[in-house]
Design a protein around this nucleic acid. Sequence first.
DNA 1: ACCTGAACACCGTTCAAGT
DNA 2: ACCTGAACACCGTTCAAGT
Lengths: 203, 203
Amino acid sequence: MTESGDVGWSAARAHAARNRDRLLQSAAEVFARDGVNASLRDVARRAGVGIGTLYRRFESREAVLAALLADSFASLNALGAELESRDDATGSLIEWLSALTDEMRAFPGVPDLVVRAMVDDDSRLHELCRNMARTGGALLARAQSSGGIRSDLTIADLLRVSAAIATIEEQGAERRKSDESTASPTASRMLDIVLDGLRPRSP
Amino acid sequence: MTESGDVGWSAARAHAARNRDRLLQSAAEVFARDGVNASLRDVARRAGVGIGTLYRRFESREAVLAALLADSFASLNALGAELESRDDATGSLIEWLSALTDEMRAFPGVPDLVVRAMVDDDSRLHELCRNMARTGGALLARAQSSGGIRSDLTIADLLRVSAAIATIEEQGAERRKSDESTASPTASRMLDIVLDGLRPRSP
DNA sequence: ACCTGAACACCGTTCAAGT
DNA sequence: ACCTGAACACCGTTCAAGT
């Protein structure tokens, strides 16, 4: 099949790129269904490629996830930059935390992953998470100096809270067999309740 | 080896009981290290029995966990009963939620497990969790009628919050590689902060 | 009655062999 | 250069064979 020189090369490269796209598409579907620890063999199967191809395109499960989540994180950084120029510092922070919580619901297991990656230098998601944290940190500092948010909180605290809420809502979104008294709360209600606790109290 | 009649039987029964104890001991160690989804083969190996014996003594992973967590849940119910007779209704609820959060930190993954079991009729932990929720529900109702807790909250909300905090602290308790700005908050601080949000606000 | 371990159908990950 | 699938070392779970 070897066509001479560049033609063969670029055909192979195009094919490789298509495989990468298919793998990402497939991974998005499988992770959405089975969570971030879903079977990578499943991902490869559904993409119609061999398992070896997956490992050739992505050095690890986290590399796949990093590729899938990169856009989310970029949009959070963009939103943060935009919110910096708003008057309401506290409202800005809360809006950003809401957006973060939403993004973390991409796949089951993402919140956990993000919290761990924040603290693990070796994670493929480490830098992505750290950048995102920097964006949030700026918003937090502004909200704190405006007096709208307790001054003893750190951005690490808030990311953990956000992750916790995202985990809760992720589970609440699943099919429930008995739905009487344990019906899941509205998506944003839990976050609202918890964020209430972040304001300074004047008793 | 077959000794005649009852003697052989009771020896076998005693042996079986000892195996069960060893398995539980081993499971406690392995789950503490690797979380609730740890290898059951590992559990059997460390207990010095065949994998078949584990499955003979416990019909499922959840059955092992139910056996390990039964005491915790019982003590929460006892604590609840005791707190019912205290004057400070809100303080009682908060103390109980603190205790619950602590118990959920038994092994990594327990909070998630409890939240799921609460909603899954088929789980071996379902009844255990439901009873515990009933205990908390009574404390919540009392705190709400005393005016100390927002009236729109349900016990399901609070258990989810507790699970979320327990998850956070469980992760915070792990060895961190970089510990600068992401240092984990003190054990109870997150819970305190969040519980602040549960009080009615008077602006 | 109880215990064991082989057996089955899956994983994640690597790497020789093919094109 | 890229792709494939066998190979290895693991799982969870079941069940025939042993005592």
